[in-house]
Design a binder for these strands. Structure first.
Lengths: 220, 220
DNA sequence: TGACTATTCGAGCATTTGCTCACATTGTCA
DNA sequence: TGACAATGTGAGCAAATGCTCGAATAGTCA
């Protein structure tokens, strides 16, 4: 009680906060191991014992800093949020408002792909596919929100005439379709991945342009 | 050995074939219970004990006719294949070749939705999301193939100028996007479901028309 | 150095889950 | 009716998994 609150960590923590350097490194290695395992075996087959083993530590140490398995995923989603926010911020900070809808889609997809390549496990937390835990799934939804928010703002400013609810629907389609692309990427060879990515861009570009850049077509 | 092969059931069976009426009814009730549970709790939380309990029988009886848990899902996928093939066949047997691409997409999505509404658990086996078993996942892929095949033939005849690999890519996009719609439907209210369905039709219609009905637009 | 705290460790508990097996019951057919 | 096959049953085994706990080790600070 003598020390001030060093790290609230929300309510979910209820566990020791790492103070010494070795324990901080250990927490980091646990998170890294969880991310790699997530990429290798998927969320369904992810076990705490396997995480600890891959991190080169014991389960006891893992539960010293994480109250339960879901907390590891939540913490991982947190770190992903920072990464993706930074990356998409950089991608979109150039003068993008004046670009065409197809260009915007290309930028977004490429940005997501960049994060995906650099960050193992990202697609599993973005697509939130079967995390089997409400807490972890909520963290995944928060990740999705944080990913889509900058694009939402960008579109709101660039296309003030498009009503908000329609913009939201379009962004939802964008998010869901992007997830599919990421989820499918794992099972396909590189050439097919490239093709799918190109097609996703094309489909989303056509769809979004029909609402945001109705140049020739304005039926319905 | 005296009786002829009554029911090959592929290799996966290796279990007793139900001969009396009561056991046939039991197998049917097991499949129905599995389908309902699949819809209620998802593939991840589906357990054999729960299936048996819901079917009003014992696990022993279940394993009397199914060699393992995956076999139940495989058999279920089989029954779904028959259902969906019949439904889509009826939907597409009218003169559809002359219709627009948007009409075709509407028919397909509505057909899939019809099956989904009538058949609990269908979306879990169509989207094959995390079945956690290679055998079951293969059965799900077979289900997808059987769903997409008639549409593939239809398009091949109606648009002989579109090269085969491009047609395949488009159908893959159609399948994946449809899955997303079904998977998302569960978490949304009816109004949002309708909206998403409409948007999916719109997006797929625009995308497919760009390849199959290139009226005004022909830039790569 | 000594006392106290932070950290590490891993055997193992409690629970879940796929599945088996020995036995009981029911149907069939001579 | 009797003999055999088909079917039904559920206690419980083996393995997996989330997580605890008591004990050992390392760091900090007076």
């Amino acid at each position: 009680m003598s020390e001030p609150v060093e790290n609230p960590e929300s309510v979910s923590s209820s566990r020791r906060t790492p103070r010494q350097e070795r324990s901080q490194k250990r927490v980091a290695s646990i998170l890294q191991a969880a991310a790699q395992l997530l990429e290798e075996v998927g969320a369904g087959a992810l076990t705490t014992n396997a995480i600890a083993q891959k991190a080169g530590t014991s389960i006891g140490s893992l539960y010293q800093f994480f109250p339960n398995k879901a907390a590891v995923l939540v913490k991982l989603a947190d770190s992903f949020r920072q990464d993706v926010t930074r990356t998409l911020g950089r991608v979109f900070n150039i003068q993008t408002a004046r670009r065409s809808m197809l260009d915007l889609v290309n930028l977004f997809i490429d940005g997501i792909e960049e994060v995906q390549k650099r960050t193992p496990g990202f697609s599993y937390l973005f697509s939130a596919a079967r995390l089997d835990d409400p807490t972890a799934e909520e963290a995944a939804q928060q990740l999705e929100r944080e990913i889509m928010e900058p694009l939402d703002k960008l579109l709101a400013e660039a296309y003030p005439d498009v009503p908000e609810n329609q913009r939201r629907v379009c962004l939802r389609m964008l998010a869901e379709t992007s997830k599919v692309m990421l989820a499918n990427a794992k099972h396909l060879d590189v050439a097919t991945q490239d093709m799918m990515r190109r097609e996703v861009k094309r489909m989303l570009g056509l769809y979004l342009a029909s609402y945001f850049d109705p140049k020739k077509d304005e039926s319905t």
